[in-house]
């Protein structure tokens, strides 16, 4: 579930509010958006993919909330790691999709 909107990184663009398919965030005029309905989060990671400054962190746990430390996430290069993996970070390139080399299905 979504666990972090980094106050240090967030630029109040409210893109996460717009793109979240389950409407988890609320915009706050003049301030960072807030996680208003955490338990509606479906752990799909799409907000992270769209955040232009890697200010969001979705923990991989679908059913429980956890405490996260922004400092540790930064140290472990986890902020923005999904955006980098799909090639949406500035300068990042996604590795070409090699699905066709694997067996079909899924």
């Amino acid at each position: 579930m979504i666990e972090l909107v980094s106050a240090e990184r967030c630029i109040n663009c409210d893109l996460c509010v717009q793109v979240c398919p389950t409407n988890v965030f609320d915009a706050v005029p003049g301030d960072n958006p807030v996680i208003a309905r955490q338990h509606d989060c479906q752990t799909c990671f799409m907000c992270e993919a769209y955040c232009p400054v890697d200010a969001l962190y979705v923990a991989p746990f679908a059913e429980r909330t956890v405490n996260v430390s922004e400092h540790e996430l930064e140290r472990d290069a986890l902020l923005g790691s999904y955006r980098r993996a799909i090639g949406w970070s500035p300068g990042a390139r996604a590795a070409p999709d090699q699905s066709f080399r694997l067996l079909r299905g899924g």
């Binding site: 986890l78 999709d97 090699q98």
Partner: peptide
């Protein structure tokens, strides 16, 4: 070995959860 090499590019989000734990 090839499977392991190609899997990450085929489904980046499959590995996301694992990387994070």
């Amino acid at each position: 070995d090839d499977d392991r090499r190609y899997a990450r590019s085929a489904q980046p989000n499959f590995f996301l959860s694992f990387d994070r734990v």
